[in-house]
Nucleic acid binder design. Sequence first.
DNA 1: CGCCTGAGTCTGTCAATCGAACTCAGGTAT
DNA 2: ATACCTGAGTTCGATTGACAGACTCAGGCG
Lengths: 154, 154
Amino acid sequence: MSLPFRVTNCSIERTLGIVGEKWTFLVLREAFNGVRRFADMQAHTGAPRQVLSARLTRLVDEGLLRKEPYREPGQRQRDEYRLTEKGRDLYPLLVSLMHWGDRYLADDGPPVQLTHRDCGAPVELRFRCADGHEVAGPREVTALPGAGAQLESA
Amino acid sequence: MSLPFRVTNCSIERTLGIVGEKWTFLVLREAFNGVRRFADMQAHTGAPRQVLSARLTRLVDEGLLRKEPYREPGQRQRDEYRLTEKGRDLYPLLVSLMHWGDRYLADDGPPVQLTHRDCGAPVELRFRCADGHEVAGPREVTALPGAGAQLESA
DNA sequence: CGCCTGAGTCTGTCAATCGAACTCAGGTAT
DNA sequence: ATACCTGAGTTCGATTGACAGACTCAGGCG
């Protein structure tokens, strides 16, 4: 899969500018797991508190998480962090990380099995073209300049 | 999508231990683009040379890339870096990064359009269950302990 | 021998991470 | 009024990684 052209506005690179590092991924993982509070995020990700605070702030600023006020009885109001649709749309990314790890790093099979809620069958991520064909992988894919291509001079 | 159990051997986290940072992703992007040589990798990723060298070495050590000798006429033998199958299996990850960026960060539409080589239609990444149902996203997914689950005590 | 070339490696500076400790800010009890 | 509580940060100094620029390496060739 050689790329005979180059763009200056690569989407991969722009996405990485927001999420391209470990702690952010782990925060997103927890958000998908339903974890919303600072202390729980911290306990489950293991992120140093300063790092976690910075990542949460960044994800809110970028619109992937939103703050929602909550208040435990006897305590003051605080904020939880919830996924937005923009954040939720990173689900394929998290799942592809998981599935690759299941395949190459999990010694005894997948630790977590994602299943279809309605029927219970395992869930997979598959390539498909708009005409309905199964696409097996990068060798069956051709990259073309898209509508937003800003071509890089050779 | 709440997770009512926890594992200590999370595949996402283990994958992130190898690829969870920007430069590694960019190296992989270039590998998928057919770039194989150090100087080309460096030019296209913009990685500092020391960083690039370290990432290439790591990816070779982890089996995602392999070295293959080459020799330009009049020069000495050197090594190129090529994807292994293990590395190629990270294609869904790269594509999900791209598609998310296309949707949320690309102002004028996707810079790069991935198409099916055989028919030309745009390629998408879709969730499907083993029984053939389309799965729309995280809300239709249930996570269960898998065969390799090492459960974390609450 | 010297030159060439691409692939690293080295060095000192800067930035981010890290662990531990500290602060903040509402609610509540005294 | 003050003191305590609690979760969510913030601060601080040490450590680690990134970074730019310069340097080295190692075969081939004249």
